[in-house]
Amino acid sequence: MLERKRVKGRTQVTFILPEDTPGGPVSVVGDFNHWNPAAHPLESRGDGTRAATVALPAHSAHSFRYLAADDHWFDEEHADGHDGLNSRVHT
């Protein structure tokens, strides 16, 4: 799931997954962090979910995917779209 919040010309996008699906660590990686899995690991929120928030320029579009343990890449089911292998988010 994606949540968005406008803050001073930028959009904070929060990437949210269930706490245990998939098991193990998960990161959101995309063109906004040079596909670096260490940049935005999802952290537990205490409500049964885990999330990472990224500040992106307003009125832009970005490609991203999730990376879980054992090199398991997967897409966001509720993304704004897809461009081949990647999910897309519009701010």
Rank of each mutant, 00 (worst) to 15 (best):
H40M: 03
R65H: 05
A51R: 11
G24P: 14
A61W: 01
A55C: 03
T14E: 05
V54M: 00
V29S: 07
P41Q: 00
N36R: 02
K8E: 15
G84L: 00
T91I: 00
A55Q: 04
A55D: 09
L56M: 03
R65C: 01
L2V: 03
Q12I: 13
A69M: 13
I16E: 03
S27T: 09
S27K: 10
F64Y: 15
S60E: 05
D71G: 05
P22E: 08
E77Y: 04
L42I: 07
V7E: 12
A51I: 01
A68I: 05
A69R: 12
P25C: 08
S87E: 07
N86K: 04
M1V: 00
D75F: 05
T91E: 00
F15D: 05
K5S: 11
G23W: 09
V26G: 12
T21N: 14
E77C: 07
R45E: 09
F64V: 02
P25T: 15
D20L: 12
P22G: 11
A58H: 03
T53V: 08
A55S: 08
V13P: 00
L2M: 09
R6V: 11
A79N: 01
R50E: 03
D20V: 12
F15E: 08
T21M: 11
G84C: 09
H62T: 03
P22A: 13
T14S: 14
V13M: 07
P18D: 15
E19M: 13
D80P: 00
A39L: 02
V28E: 01
G24K: 10
S44N: 13
D75V: 12
K8V: 11
H82A: 02
L17T: 08
H40L: 12
M1D: 10
L2K: 06
H59Y: 07
W35M: 11
V13S: 04
A58L: 09
E77V: 08
D80V: 07
L2F: 01
H78W: 08
R65G: 04
F64G: 09
I16H: 05
R88P: 07
V89L: 06
R65S: 10
T49C: 01
V29W: 10
V28I: 14
L85D: 13
V13H: 04
G30H: 05
A51M: 13
G81K: 06
S87Q: 04
S60P: 01
V29T: 14
N36L: 10
G46N: 03
Q12C: 01
H90K: 08
G30S: 09
S87K: 07
H90E: 13
L85H: 13
W35V: 07
N33S: 14
D47H: 06
V29Y: 02
F64C: 11
R4K: 15
R65E: 09
D70W: 04
H82K: 11
T14G: 01
Q12N: 15
F32A: 02
S63E: 10
N33D: 15
